[in-house]
């Protein structure tokens, strides 16, 4: 019995060590095209690029970026994107949303648009593009159950890539302030010796945290820089 316990403990311990090693790699970049900065009372809104253009940014990713940007004492004032879209209906629907900054001037001339944006203090619109995809996977894991009990045996792995780009539009100058991108890759494992032990790489969460932190730095950078 003791020997059996030892047999199970050894690989579990080894896998726990393995899981503590880096399974997620990330790259974050930004390209600035204008000065940024944000004043008291000004806010940002996070939007997904239109699905009419094939974009598939997940709703939960947008909410994650919103939460991370707003978090903490130095958090930004974030207007929830659905509230923003409703308040400016129909000009930020997937069909009608401006695709380029050159369309902003015309948008601002539409009845009530500039007033609604000013009312909410929106200084920046951040457009997200990208998604998280499973790019590879393998292994084999099977489970069986019988009258005496059940269990799983095998090993499975998969790799997720989270690639997101954020375009920052400055509504003060009606121009682009630049872009920030995060590229995160994570490999998850699931070995099973009777009990499956999932070692999940939080690829999307990492991409969210990384991009939100970089966006925060990008926006609050002193205007003197």
């Amino acid at each position: 019995m003791k020997q059996a316990k030892r047999l199970i403990k050894a690989p579990v311990f080894a896998l726990m060590i393995l899981s503590s090693t880096a399974c997620v790699t990330s790259t974050v970049q930004d390209a600035r095209t204008g000065l940024t900065g944000i004043n008291e009372g000004e806010s940002v809104v996070i939007m997904a690029k239109s699905y009419h253009l094939g974009n598939e940014t997940e709703m939960k990713y947008i909410r994650c970026i919103e939460d991370n940007l707003a978090r903490g004492s130095k958090g930004l004032r974030v207007i929830p994107h659905d509230e923003f879209i409703d308040s400016l209906f129909p000009w930020f629907e997937p069909r009608t949303a401006p695709a380029e900054t050159k369309n902003l001037a015309k948008l601002m001339d539409r009845p009530g648009v500039a007033d609604k944006i000013a009312e909410q203090g929106i200084r920046y619109i951040i457009w997200l593009d990208g998604d998280t995809d499973r790019v590879a996977g393998g292994g084999s894991l099977s489970c069986a159950a019988g009258p005496g009990g059940g269990g799983c045996f095998g090993f499975a792995w998969w790799q997720n890539d989270a690639d997101y780009d954020a375009s920052v539009w400055d509504l003060e100058g009606l121009e682009s302030a630049g872009t920030v991108s995060a590229d995160v890759s994570g490999t998850s494992f699931m070995p099973a010796l009777v009990i499956p032990l999932p070692f999940i790489a939080r690829t999307q969460s990492k991409a969210c945290k990384t991009l939100a932190d970089q966006l925060h730095s990008f926006i609050v950078q002193d205007e003197s820089v």
């Binding site: 009419h52 253009l53 401006p98 695709a99």
Partner: peptide, 8 residues
């Protein structure tokens, strides 16, 4: 005239 992103 209209600044649409796309007209699927």
């Amino acid at each position: 005239e209209v600044q649409t992103t796309a007209l699927e």
